[in-house]
Design a protein around this nucleic acid. Structure first.
Lengths: 359, 359
DNA sequence: CTGAAAGCGCTTACAG
DNA sequence: CTGAAAGCGCTTACAG
C-alpha cells in the first residue's frame, strides 16, 4: 500500500506518453492542445496513451514554454485582528463579507476562461506589501488589486509594467478599473430619505478617507442633499471606516460629545451601518423611529439584521467577474477596450430607513 | 507614456542581472537564494544589479527547475445559485461564511511559509470535477480539499499519487485530515440543554448525509442524549443540509405535516439553524420560549441573529492553518507525522438556547 | 501531417 | 568561491 507520505512515483511526462503512443512529443503536444490537426490515428493513439498513463501536463513547464501561466492573482486587504469583545467576530471575519464575494466572482469568471486564481492578502499596515505583490506577479499573467491594497503611485508603477486591474480603487493612467455607480446609489438613497420619508437632516458616516468609493459616495450625498434642498452633515466627527467597529466607535464618539443626531445617517457601507445600529441600540436610540440608517453594498447579512438594512446593492460577484474579463483582455489582447467599467447598482428598500416591515 | 495595454518591455531575466553585475547567472541565483555563501563583493554587485533592474525571478522557471512550485491549491464546494427570494442571499453567499474563513486560515499559514495559494471551487453536481482538480494539482505542490468536494474513492486515488489534506472530510488511508472535535461539541450542547435548561426532548436537524462532520455530530448527539436519559429525535424527517434554506425547508416540512416539535432543536450547523429560526418565526413560534435552537460553527453572523445563536465555536481559521501545515510537511518531509488532527471546540452560550440576554 | 531541435528562465551538480 | 553546462517538461517555429 502506498500511504500518504510515501514517495509517490513521479508523474508521467510528455516523453512517457510519446513513447507509449509511438509518436513524437510534438505530436502529443499538438493533440492535447488541439493545434494543427493531427491524423485521426495519431490522435487516437495519443489519447489512449494519455488515458492509460493518466497524463496531465505540468503547469510550470507549460507556462515557461508557452509564456502564459494561465493564472491571475488577486490581492485583497486584510485588517489586523482587533480586540473585539468576546463572541464578536473579528473585523477580519467581517471583511470577508465583501471581499470574498468579489473574489468569488473573479474565480468563476477565471474558471470559465481556463485560468486559475492565485489569492493573496496584504495586511493593513504591511511594509513590504509591494515586494510581495511583485513576487506574486511573477507567478501569474496579471493582477487584480482590491481597493486600499497599494498606494496609488505604487499601483501605477506596477501597472506600467504588468497587466493590472483595480477593483474599486484608484485608476491610474496605466491601470484599468472596475467599480460600481456610487453616485447613482447615493442619489437613490438620499432621494428616498428626503422624498418618501421627508427627512430634513442627514449625515454621511464616512468610510476610509483614502478610498475612492468613499469619496465618491460622500460627494454624491452632498450633491444630492443640496439638490433636494436639505442639510447633510459630514466632516471629521463623522469619520468612521468600513468595519462595524468603525461605525460603532464613530457613533459612540458623537453621542459622547453630546452631538445631536440627524434624522438619518447614510453609512459608507453595510458594515459601518451595522456597527452604527448596534451603538445606537446600546444607547436606547431606536432605528428607524429615532434615527434612520442606511448602508451600501447589500452584503449577505444586510437582510438578516433587525431592522433589516435599507441599502444599495452592488453587483458584487459581477464586479469581480468583470475585473477578470478586463484583465484577460489586457493579457491576451494586450489591451482592454474600456479603461474603466462602471456597473449599475440597485436601491434595496428594507426597514432601517423607516419603511414598514415586509412580510 | 506607457499606458495599460501597451506592450510592456519584457521583464529582466537572470541573464540581464548577471551581465549587469559582471558575474555568472549561477552566482546571481546563489546570492538570491542564499545558498553557499558568495563573496561579499559578488553579493553586493548582484544585489545592486537586482535593485537597478527591478529583477524578480519568474515563478514558472523557478518551479520547473527547482521542482517545487511553492504553491498549494485549495478546492472548496460551491452550491449552485438557487432561487432564493428577492433580497435573500443566495446559498452561495452563505457558503462563504464558513468556507472562506477556512481558506483565509490556509492563506495566512501558506504566506508564512512563502507559499502561494491557488483557489478553486467545484460546483455541487459538477461532472468533471476530478479532471479539473487533477489539472489544478499539476499547478501546485499539494492540495487541500474541503468536505464534499470529491467522492471518497476519488479522493483516495488522488491522495495516493499526490500530497492531499482533507478538511473536515473523509480521511482515506492515503490522505491526511483535519477536523474539529465534533463529539465534544455536541456533548456540551446536549449537556447544556438537558442539564441547565432541563429540556427532555431534543431533535437533531441533520446536515448533508454524506458529510463526515454531520454523521459525527449526529452520533454524538444520540449518545449524549442517551447518556442523559432523554429523548433525541432524528431521522429522514429531520434531514436538512448545511444551508439556511435547507433548515427552513425541513422545519416547514415538519410543521406542514403537523409534526410536534421537541423542546429544542440541535442543528447541524449555524446556517441551518438560521433557516430553522426564520421558518419558526414565520409560524409565530418563539425561539427560545417555545422551541430552543442551537447551531454549530460560530460563523461571524451567529451573534448578529436575534435571538443570538447559542452554538459551538470551531477554530475555523486554525483549521485552515493546520491543514496547510500538514500539507507542507507532506510536501517537504514527504510525510506528515499525524495522520489526523482534531482541534478542540468551544461551547458558546448565547440566547437561542433559552439563556438570558447578555448585556 | 509529423519529427528533430531549439528555447522558455531558472537551479544545481560538477569542475576548477 | 565561481563558472560552464546540463536539465526541469513543455511549446513551437522550422524542415521535410
Amino acid at each position: 500500500m502506498t500511504g500518504a507520505g510515501q514517495a509517490e512515483r513521479a508523474a508521467p511526462t510528455i516523453y512517457d506518453v510519446a513513447r507509449a503512443a509511438g509518436v513524437s512529443i510534438a505530436s502529443v503536444s499538438r493533440v492535447l492542445n488541439g493545434t494543427r490537426n493531427p491524423r485521426p490515428e495519431t490522435r487516437d493513439r495519443v489519447l489512449q496513451a494519455v488515458a492509460e498513463l493518466g497524463f496531465v501536463p505540468d503547469g510550470a513547464a507549460r507556462a515557461l514554454s508557452a509564456r502564459l501561466k494561465e493564472m491571475v492573482g488577486v490581492v485583497y486587504r486584510r485588517v489586523p485582528l482587533d480586540a473585539a469583545g468576546p463572541g464578536a467576530p473579528s473585523s477580519e471575519d467581517e471583511n470577508l463579507q465583501f471581499a470574498d464575494v468579489l473574489n468569488r466572482g473573479v474565480e468563476v469568471a477565471a474558471r470559465r476562461s481556463g485560468f486559475s486564481l492565485l489569492i493573496s492578502s496584504v495586511d493593513a499596515g504591511e511594509r513590504n506589501a509591494e515586494s510581495r505583490i511583485r513576487a506574486l506577479a511573477r507567478k501569474c499573467d496579471g493582477l487584480i488589486v482590491h481597493d486600499l491594497v497599494l498606494e496609488p503611485d505604487k499601483l501605477g508603477h506596477l501597472a506600467r509594467q504588468f497587466p493590472v486591474v483595480s477593483l474599486a480603487g484608484v485608476t491610474t493612467p496605466s491601470s484599468v478599473g472596475v467599480r460600481c455607480d456610487n453616485a447613482a446609489g447615493m442619489r437613490s438613497l438620499v432621494g428616498h430619505l428626503a422624498g418618501e420619508h421627508g427627512y430634513r437632516t442627514l449625515a454621511y458616516l464616512a468610510g476610509f478617507p483614502d478610498s475612492p468609493d468613499n469619496l465618491a459616495r460622500r460627494d454624491a450625498a452632498v450633491a444630492a442633499a443640496a439638490a433636494a434642498g436639505i442639510k447633510l452633515i459630514e466632516g471629521p466627527q463623522w469619520q468612521a471606516g468600513y468595519f462595524s467597529h468603525d461605525g460603532a466607535r464613530a457613533i459612540d464618539g458623537l453621542l459622547g460629545h453630546g452631538t445631536a443626531l440627524p434624522r438619518a445617517v447614510l453609512c459608507a457601507n453595510d458594515l459601518a451601518a451595522l456597527g452604527a445600529m448596534q451603538a445606537l441600540a446600546r444607547r436606547g436610540i431606536d432605528v428607524p423611529r429615532d434615527v434612520a440608517v442606511t448602508g451600501f453594498d447589500d452584503i449577505p447579512l444586510a437582510h438578516l439584521l433587525r431592522p433589516q438594512l435599507t441599502t444599495v446593492r452592488q453587483p458584487i460577484q459581477e464586479l469581480g467577474a468583470t475585473a477578470f474579463e478586463l484583465l484577460e483582455s489586457l493579457i491576451t489582447a494586450g489591451q482592454a477596450t474600456p479603461r474603466e467599467v462602471v456597473l449599475p447598482v440597485q436601491f434595496i428598500q428594507r426597514e432601517s430607513c423607516g419603511c414598514p416591515q415586509r412580510s
